[in-house]
Nucleic acid binder design. Structure first.
Length: 521
DNA sequence: CGTTTTTGACCTGCGC
DNA sequence: GCGCAGGTCAAAAACG
């Protein structure tokens, strides 16, 4: 009995438990179904997003492939032009070519660097946007130079397919820049802003914000009141800054009404032939082709400042195989290097990169030498007994292209002289040929030396300016450093800009010399 | 007449 | 808080 009762009770209990479980299960099913439903809907939305992303990806891929094709076509055409130009150079300037050949023998790969320089087109009129203007009679080089500063990088290895990937990589970067030649958002490759539509959002991003506030100062010998950097500027103010009798002019970009880019232009108080243009901000609109190099260069320089500032904070001093990295209280280095970054009181606390383009022809050789070294491919382990891959620097300058980033509005040299006094503007002072690099509270002297040498532009006594020392220092760079430097598009861009101005400057002098020689045989 | 330049006034940040 | 210097605004003038 007790057993039966027990069984019955247990049976009832079992049923009850079953019932409870059924209830639990049903309630669990309900919540589970709800949860499933939520997950499914989320999955569905994610799937939709993925489809959109795929579609976007497909579009980007096709766009990229199109851009690559375009670039290859352009590259082929350009190579042909370079070959033609080399031939003509062999005929007309065997001496300069001879100097190059000395370097070529040591080079590991072929780097074609085509640089044009500013013309004084702007003096003829405001034709910056008119890229299809009156260029009927000019050849391709002239066309490119006619648009202002033109520069291109070609990085080719003819012998080592394994390095082709690297090359393609760099080309791809170049291609992106070229394909976006009217869009400075191409500065993406430098980690800059993507688009200028929503500035407020990007203000919150620290690095970009820093870039925005970073200023790039370009020092160049320019006889006209303003450099023709290809962009359109409107003057909105002028001040006489303390410590400099020359007024500082304030410009803003007028290509787009909402463009945040500002420019300050001021003559150097010590040497009034030097024009200091300080750029701030990033264009948020398509740029004319002629404005792209300068914009890219300044962006690259700003990017370099960023990377330098971040990297230099880790240590107080370093000596990297002859390259003197130092952090000091006095940001002004004892030697005048190439690139200079600083946070001076004059820049109102803005980190400022200074690109010094007041270089001589000897510095051009220095530059070429350095570029050759710096352009060495990162991994040259492959034996190439028979091949002497070369670095061919081809400066496709028309001799008429001057380092005359001429101002607009009918200003001319006479006006300039009237405004600033009739100072000697032609080779009035020795050209320093350094690029200085200063970071906030730190200094980066890429030469690790001081130089107070004064050279005539045509002087090519390399020892005099310590070329041997430089070469040695660069040669002793570790492969990683060389790789990091040479693969940095920022470096290439900034270097190309500096080179182009130097070459343009020297070509101008050469052309002047030639003209004078013609006049007085 | 539209655009650009000039220029004095004003604003802002920083050091004292 | 004050003064200074850098930077910007905006009305007037100049320019094309």
């Amino acid at each position: 009995m007790e057993n039966e009762d027990f069984l019955r009770s247990t049976g009832q209990g079992r049923e009850e438990r079953h019932e409870e479980m059924r209830k639990l299960a049903s309630s669990h099913d309900d919540s589970h179904q709800e949860h499933d439903h939520v997950i499914r809907s989320q999955l569905e939305s994610i799937r939709v997003e993925m489809e959109e992303a795929k579609e976007e990806n497909r579009r980007l891929k096709s766009s990229l492939s199109r851009t690559k094709k375009d670039f290859e076509i352009l590259q082929t055409q350009y190579n042909q032009l370079m070959v033609q130009h080399d031939d003509s150079n062999n005929k007309f300037s065997p001496e300069g070519h001879h100097q190059d050949k000395g370097n070529i023998s040591e080079r590991e790969e072929l780097v074609l660097l085509s640089l044009g320089s500013m013309t004084n087109k702007e003096e003829k009129g405001k034709g910056l946007m008119d890229e299809t203007g009156d260029g009927k009679k000019i050849d391709e080089h002239e066309k490119s130079s006619d648009q202002g500063l033109s520069m291109r990088f070609e990085y080719e290895d003819l012998s080592n397919p394994s390095e082709k990937l690297e090359i393609d990589h760099s080309q791809e970067k170049t291609t992106l820049e070229v394909s976006n030649n009217n869009m400075i958002p191409s500065e993406n490759s430098y980690g800059f802003k993507n688009d200028g539509d929503d500035h407020e959002d990007e203000e919150e991003l620290l690095p970009q914000n820093l870039v925005k506030k970073t200023r790039v100062s370009v020092r160049a010998r320019c006889e006209t009141p303003t450099m023709n950097d290809g962009c359109q500027w409107r003057k909105y103010g002028q001040k006489i800054a303390k410590g400099n009798p020359c007024p500082r002019a304030y410009y803003r970009c007028t290509i787009a009404p909402s463009c945040p880019v500002r420019k300050q232009v001021q003559r150097c108080s010590e040497d009034m032939s030097i024009l200091i243009s300080t750029y701030e901000g990033t264009h948020n609109h398509p740029l004319p082709l002629s404005a792209t190099p300068m914009a890219s260069a300044t962006s690259a320089a700003a990017s370099m400042l960023l990377s330098g500032a971040s990297s230099s904070s880790s240590s107080d001093a370093a000596d990297l195989h002859g390259l003197n990295f130092s952090l000091s209280g006095n940001p002004k280095p004892t030697s005048p290097p190439f690139l200079q970054t600083s946070s001076s009181p004059s820049s109102s606390g803005h980190p400022t990169v200074t690109i010094d383009l007041t270089a001589s022809s000897s510095s051009q050789q220095t530059f070429l030498s350095m570029l050759n070294r710096f352009s060495a491919p990162p991994n040259n382990n492959v034996s190439r007994s028979n091949s002497y891959p070369s670095t061919n620097l081809n400066f496709s300058n028309n001799t008429n292209t001057l380092m005359n980033w001429g101002g607009s509005s009918g200003h001319n040299n006479e006006q300039y002289r009237a405004a600033y006094g009739n100072i000697g503007m032609h080779q009035q002072s020795p050209y320093n040929h350094m690029i200085q690099t200063r970071t906030t509270g730190s200094s980066f002297d890429i030469f690790g030396r001081s130089s107070s040498s004064s050279l005539h532009p045509t002087q090519t006594n390399l020892d005099h300016v310590g070329i041997k020392n430089i070469t040695h220092q660069v040669q002793t760079l570790p492969a990683e450093t060389i790789k990091a430097i040479t693969t940095d598009p920022s470096f290439q861009s900034a270097l190309a800009t500096a080179l182009s101005s130097i070459i343009g400057s020297d070509l101008k002098k050469d052309s002047v010399t030639k003209n004078e020689a013609k006049k007085s045989p």
